[in-house]
Design a binder for these strands. Structure first.
Lengths: 207, 207
DNA sequence: CTATTTTTCTATAGTGCAATAGAATTATCA
DNA sequence: TGATAATTCTATTGCACTATAGAAAAATAG
């Protein structure tokens, strides 16, 4: 008995983890669609065919569910970027990989990504801070690649690394807003956007 | 008496218009800060030092206030773009002007712009449609300039006008999310982003 | 100064929501 | 099978919010 209690408290049964995940999935979908404040716990329960109150067996609050969705939505983001930044390839290649990696999660976890991007601002102080630190780390990675590219002559030396980072991240983050209604696969988008980031729109071979 | 009634109904007194505008200003600020669903009419009233119920002398509903904020946030956007697109300058110059015009409202109407960008999705069907048509017109303008630039050789002919448009609009729309915390004036941002859009990051003079 | 209109107020109805309490049900295991 | 634990349910509390009704106050006009 003591053994079971302990197990329940410290590491939930497999089934609890699984059900919990189903609920987080539903929450992600509802939050992505209606926004955190516009979504009700009833909406989440409806999606699962269960009662609104039953959710509270798995979650302390709606806010906790948002934290979990955002945590999963952010997971691996920075790690993947750090892996890319260390792969020793030319800066222009690393930059393109960073751009591609940034939208890759839209493929299999669009709801998590959209919730993370749009709703994290409603997180309670502490987790919002944590997410903020993550964002800053990601931005720093972009800036670093750009600086290295400038230093070794791959990139123009009149680039502003900070502004360039914000420009590119904005460009990539926006993909989540139109990805579903435009008929373009992610790898094609990454390719085009990478090309645009590197070469711009001008036809340098003119004349 | 009949005269006065008529005047009140058809064209509000100067003071009513003015007060109405103050309320819309407050609504814009609150909506921009907390989101439409996260903001209460009480929040708006607090900002004005008036009672929550008094707002309903000027507005039928919270939704109506959102419509008005979004309408003002969108006002002039497309018109300005259409003016630029017809000015006969080279496509690259027009594109830069479009980019600059797109973020210009952040200077004096940030709350309206942010509400328009982030909260319009909560508008009721009809006005959401109207806003949607506007967005599509703006996108069409960007696409047209890009196509013209390709046709006359200013832009690379392997550009995808649709994707390029979405990339640039995403890049510019994102400015509203960080403009307040980054210390860069709008004209500087427009300059850097225009340069990035035209020339990309690569150092073509390499070697 | 009085009557009328405009604006704001108090009070409250009505609704939807997050969250809790505890009963009922289902699964697990000896 | 019978006991125990895990899960879901019903019922409800309490609060926050939008919106309405009608009184009070302030402004305006005759």
């Amino acid at each position: 008995m003591a053994r079971q209690l302990k197990q329940t408290e410290k590491s939930p049964q497999r089934n609890v983890r699984k059900r919990r995940r189903e609920i987080v999935d539903a929450a992600a979908r509802v939050f992505a669609e209606r926004g955190y404040h516009g979504a009700s716990t009833q909406d989440i329960a409806d999606l699962l065919g269960m009662r609104q109150a039953s959710l509270y067996y798995y979650f302390d609050s709606k806010e906790t569910a948002l934290e979990e969705v955002c945590a999963l939505g952010a997971a691996g983001f920075v790690e993947k970027a750090e892996e890319i930044v260390r792969n020793g390839l030319p800066a222009q290649e690393r930059l393109c990989q960073l751009l591609a990696a940034h939208i890759a999660p839209l493929d299999h976890r669009a709801d998590y990504t959209r919730t993370f991007l749009n709703e994290r601002k409603w997180l309670p102080m502490e987790s919002r801070r944590k997410v903020g630190r993550m964002s800053r780390r990601l931005e720093a990675i972009f800036e670093r690649v750009i600086r290295e590219g400038i230093r070794n002559g791959e990139f123009r030396n009149d680039l502003n690394p900070r502004m360039t980072t914000l420009a590119l991240l904005g460009m990539m983050n926006a993909v989540s807003t139109w990805y579903e209604r435009e008929s373009a696969p992610l790898d094609r988008i990454a390719e085009l956007f990478g090309d645009l980031a590197l070469n711009g729109t001008l036809n340098v071979a003119a004349d």
